[in-house]
């Protein structure tokens, strides 16, 4: 129910508050973007046809190294 799929905004119609989202592997679908502030190129989470949040690309790329750091700090204690 709360499933949300990440995708990239490739087209944006600000007036209609819709965007085309590219989910990879050739899957593209329209989504309503009235709940978020976005620009073309942003990654968003889409739930039930609505973008509900913009994903932080930097945080996403750093997630694994952050986890590793947390674990090694704990190991040292």
């Amino acid at each position: 129910m709360c499933l949300a799929i990440p995708g990239k905004i490739i087209e944006l119609d600000k007036k209609k508050q819709t965007a085309t989202v590219d989910y990879g592997s050739g899957t593209k679908r329209k989504a309503n973007v009235s709940l978020v502030k976005i620009k073309i190129g942003d990654y968003v989470l889409v739930h039930a046809g609505f973008a509900i949040q913009v994903l932080d690309e930097k945080e996403a790329l750093e997630t694994l190294s952050l986890f590793k750091e947390m674990l090694s700090l704990q190991e040292e204690r």
Partner: peptide
């Protein structure tokens, strides 16, 4: 309209 806080904004957006 079922769903938690994730889904409720989509209902609200349409009603607006």
């Amino acid at each position: 309209a079922v769903g938690f806080e994730t889904t409720a904004p989509t209902t609200a957006s349409v009603l607006l």
